[in-house]
């Protein structure tokens, strides 16, 4: 189990990452697009398939590992980040990915998600957010809008939803991004950035559930509305969006606000900086989109370098280890300092 990553002799292709299992999502599910995007992205990692491992929880999205010809574990509800923490900490030679959903990661597994991010374990976490429970057939999720009518909330949900990116930024995530299932190019750009990040990378993927919450992200996809709604973040560039760059993002009190580009001085337009040390800026970006998604930034919100839990822990272990024979040292440990001998 060496630390070095070796390159495969033959460059791999998307088809090399397809498993022999029949894909069983509903027709039209956004997961198909994400799977295809991931399969065609994985060769870019330049790693052998056996060095890649996908760990998932429970939910529609969590069937993902079965469809990839890598190592994979379909675990239990909400616990994938915990299981992946053990794997990634003990196996630095692997590229470990977590696939999860809004219920899996933010409801039953909320605790593991925030602690994995706080520790900055070297994991790539892909959260497929469809704002609904699909596998259990249509209950509201922790990202569903307040008032949402579902099977379990016939009078409307009374819950206030999480904003996943605000949450993970509060949990000290070192890499935070958002993308769309339907925008393969953007999705793969974000995956690329996540893959090279040292530490936890959190990627929220808006994903359509055609059965229980169809068109939840239509405002971001339909040609009529998407240009007005989508804010594509590019590091180092002023944040302008809309037809002909009509809108922009400016500072507003403690946060950010959308303004008309024509009404503000060019110097007042915020230049996107995903490397800002203070997460408050990324947090302010995450607050631009409300329940209605009318101003939704996508792209990399935050990407900063911070020591990873697993590398610190491994360093402690390797610093403590010596070349001496373990058995001789074991005898010394067991003996301790206070012994007596009976002849």
């Amino acid at each position: 189990m060496s630390d070095k990553l070796s390159l495969p002799i033959q460059p791999l292709k998307a088809k090399d990452f397809k498993s022999d299992q029949e894909v069983r999502w509903c027709p039209g599910c956004g997961d198909y697009a994400i799977l295809a995007a991931v399969q065609s992205f994985l060769p870019e990692l330049g790693m052998e398939r056996e060095r890649i491992c996908f760990v998932s929880g429970i939910g529609c999205s969590s069937r993902f590992p079965y469809y990839l010809n890598t190592y994979g574990m379909h675990s239990i509800h909400g616990r994938a980040p915990a299981i992946a923490t053990g794997l990634a900490t003990s196996r630095p030679d692997l590229s470990v990915w977590v696939v999860t959903g809004d219920g899996d990661a933010l409801s039953i597994g909320g605790n593991h998600l925030i602690h994995a991010l706080r520790r900055n374990v070297n994991l790539k976490i892909l959260l497929f957010n469809n704002r609904i429970y699909g596998l259990t057939k249509g209950q509201y999720s922790p990202t569903s809008e307040t008032g949402k009518i579902t099977k379990s909330t016939p009078y409307g949900s009374a819950d206030a939803p999480f904003n996943p990116l605000s949450l993970v930024l509060g949990a000290e995530a070192s890499f935070v991004a958002r993308t769309l299932d339907s925008d393969r190019k953007h999705l793969q750009e974000v995956l690329r950035a996540a893959a090279v990040h040292q530490g936890s990378a959190f990627v929220e993927i808006y994903q359509n559930c055609p059965i229980f919450n169809d068109d939840a992200f239509e405002v971001l996809k339909s040609p009529e509305s998407r240009d007005e709604a989508l804010i594509r973040l590019v590091h180092g560039e002023p944040i302008v969006f809309g037809p002909e760059g009509r809108h922009c993002v400016v500072r507003n009190g403690w946060g950010l606000a959308v303004a008309e580009t024509a009404d503000v001085a060019e110097s007042d337009i915020v230049v996107h900086d995903s490397t800002a040390a203070d997460p408050s800026y990324a947090f302010a970006l995450s607050r631009l989109s409300g329940d209605s998604l009318d101003h939704t930034p996508i792209g990399v919100f935050r990407s900063v370098r911070r020591d990873t839990y697993d590398s610190i822990v491994r360093q402690q272990v390797s610093d403590a280890q010596s070349d001496g024979a373990a058995e001789a040292e074991l005898a010394g440990l067991l003996t301790g300092s206070d012994t007596w001998t009976i002849l």
């Binding site: 189990m1 760990v55 574990m73 675990s75 616990r79 915990a82 299981i83 992946a84 923490t85 053990g86 794997l87 990634a88 900490t89 003990s90 196996r91 692997l94 605790n111 593991h112 602690h115």
Partner: peptide, 17 residues
């Protein structure tokens, strides 16, 4: 962070050998 993560991580490590 909790008992569940403790056993989960141990299982993940076992999976990794």
């Amino acid at each position: 962070e909790d008992e569940i993560a403790a056993v989960g991580a141990a299982l993940g490590a076992s999976y990794g050998g």
